[in-house]
Design a protein around this nucleic acid. Structure first.
Length: 546
DNA sequence: TTAGGGTTAG
């Protein structure tokens, strides 16, 4: 227990060396016991430490503040800064109002924080009111106040007003210039951003990073890398920005090289790598990276977990899905966030854990097309196509507009359970009600649907008449139907076509040979097998076009 | 008078 007796260190120095919330609570108890709750300097330091150690526990500082009878401007400012970044805007703005009501005048230290709070939620209306107050107080010439306004207008998409404030400032520093560059960059005006960057008298690492990010966002990774190499000092943000830029453009080799080079690897850099691998169809690499991250004691956050779930969906790793689920429920990650729940639904649906997927799906306050499709596809591929179709109908009834991917999923569901009429109906409404031009995949689904129902000629006609070249999968669906229904003549025709497209795929030969075998045409079977060995094609165990 | 402010990456 910490003692605040006269021989002990002063409460202020105790606060300054405080590292944990437990110690902070002990100091708080001592402050109360010593009757120091009205000591402005002490309470101001307390709020400041609380904010820097545990920004998400700023309400604790708020309760300590509320015990102060007549808080001075220092206390108000410290509190408002604490709330400006991490808490709800309404609470922060509420404190600002209370401060004015208690007849404490906002000063040049108050405005940057309250403007920052406005920027963080794009509260344009409130920010304009505060700007008016700033002018009224004659504080617009302060470089901190002015910079916060430039940043505010830029973040609210009002780059013209940002520039107006910028141009009217007498003194500007790196922060002012950087805020302006970010403003241009966020509206896509990269040329103007670069012009300012070249003009600015002095730059700091944030200025360089902002410009590199501008290049990355404009898609110019070469330009970004040139700046990155040129900058005098790099920090984690510099590396993180470049790594993410490479990862998003699919260049995982460059991303990985830079990741290996970066002296410190924080959660954003790990996240960029994991997400990059997951998005570029290398889910196993993503999982490997995640395990590597855990082994270095980096705590995953929601971004990382969402990427990991995407990787898990792709591999269908049921065990990993269960681990992720239990990890998330024990973590402090907010499961109420839509993208986290959507990822959970998708992961469980793809891994075949349908009850769990449905539990999350049902809990969602609003269900969008993506989550509906995750659920519908999960049901369809795991043997519940009828429920999948019912859910698709429910989705339509809710007024959601399906896209081409949604129709691929539902057509495929219909073909799984031979619901030919339903499938044809969905194909028809896709074209006529939703004005979606059928893709090769849509045609392939319809071919498979008709083919499996024995309507082989109709299916064949679709393949011949569709406006684009059918892919091998579409022909494969029909060949499979010929095998089921024993249509030797059509089977041969289709196999000939398929073999032209995919001469090295053993499945095409095997299926044709099976068709001959089923009708006892053994010399043809023999012929196909000879053809295979002439071409050096070996029969594989388990065959599929999917 | 011992304390308080604005910029950069997923």
């Amino acid at each position: 227990m910490i003692s605040l007796s006269s021989s002990s260190p002063s409460p202020l120095s105790l606060l300054k060396s405080c590292k944990t919330i437990r110690t902070l609570e002990q100091i708080h108890a001592q402050i109360i016991r010593k009757g120091s709750e009205q000591d402005h300097v002490l309470i101001s330091e307390f709020i400041s430490i609380c904010n820097s150690l545990y920004p998400n526990k700023i309400t604790y500082a708020g309760t300590v503040f509320d015990r102060v009878l007549q808080p001075n401007i220092y206390l108000w400012n410290t509190l408002i800064k604490g709330y400006s970044t991490y808490s709800s805007f309404a609470t922060c703005f509420g404190f600002f109002r209370r401060m004015k009501q208690s007849c404490v005048c906002a000063d040049k230290y108050t405005f940057p924080s309250i403007i920052k709070a406005c920027s963080s939620v794009v509260a344009l209306k409130e920010g304009r009111v505060v700007h008016g107050l700033i002018v009224k107080c004659g504080l617009e010439d302060d470089v901190f106040v002015g910079s916060s306004l430039v940043d505010f207008y830029g973040k609210c998409g009002q780059v013209f007003n940002a520039r107006k404030v910028f141009d009217e400032m007498f003194v500007r520093n790196e922060v002012t210039w950087t805020s302006m560059i970010v403003g241009y960059s966020s509206t896509g005006d990269y040329l103007e951003a670069k012009k300012l960057f070249d003009e600015m008298p002095e730059r700091n690492v944030a200025s360089w990073n902002a410009m590199i990010n501008g290049f990355v966002k404009s898609g110019d990774l070469v330009g970004a890398k040139l700046l990155f190499d040129e900058m005098p000092e790099k920090n984690m943000v510099s590396f993180g920005t470049m790594i993410d830029g490479y990862a998003k453009s699919g260049n995982m080799a460059s991303a990985h090289a830079l990741f290996d080079q970066s002296p410190e690897k924080d959660i954003v850099s790990w996240s960029a790598m994991i997400s990059g691998y997951a998005q570029n169809g290398q889910p196993k690499e993503a999982v490997k990276m995640f395990n590597d991250m855990l082994s270095r004691n980096v705590k995953p956050d929601e971004y990382v977990m969402v990427s990991l779930m995407s990787a898990c969906s792709q591999t269908g790793d049921w065990e990993l899905a269960k681990w992720v689920d239990s990890y998330l429920s024990e973590s402090s990650i907010d499961l109420g966030q839509h993208h986290v729940t959507a990822a959970l639904v998708d992961m469980h649906a793809k891994c075949g854990n349908l009850d769990r997927a449905a539990a999350f799906f049902d809990k969602m306050p609003t269900r969008d097309l993506v989550s509906y499709c995750s659920m519908i596809q999960g049901l369809s591929v795991h043997g519940h196509a009828v429920q999948a179709i019912a859910l698709f109908r429910k989705m339509l009834a809710e007024g959601l507009t399906p896209d081409d991917a949604a129709f691929t999923i539902i057509l495929s569901a219909c073909s799984h359970v031979d619901l030919v009429d339903e499938g044809c109906h969905f194909f028809e409404i896709m074209v006529n009600e939703y004005s979606i031009a059928p893709s090769t995949d849509h045609y392939a689904c319809k071919v498979s649907l008709l083919g499996r129902a024995g309507r082989l000629r109709e299916a064949y006609d679709i393949l011949k008449e569709m406006p684009m070249e059918p892919h091998a999968g579409a022909w494969g669906g029909l060949l499979w139907a010929c095998r089921i229904h024993g249509d030797v003549a059509l089977g041969k025709e289709v196999a000939d076509r398929l073999i032209k497209i995919e001469p090295q795929n053993p499945a095409n030969y095997v299926l044709l040979s099976d068709i001959y075998a089923a009708s006892n045409q053994w010399s043809d079977v023999h012929h196909v097998r000879n053809l295979m060995s002439e071409k050096g094609i070996r029969k594989l165990c388990g065959r599929s076009w999917i």
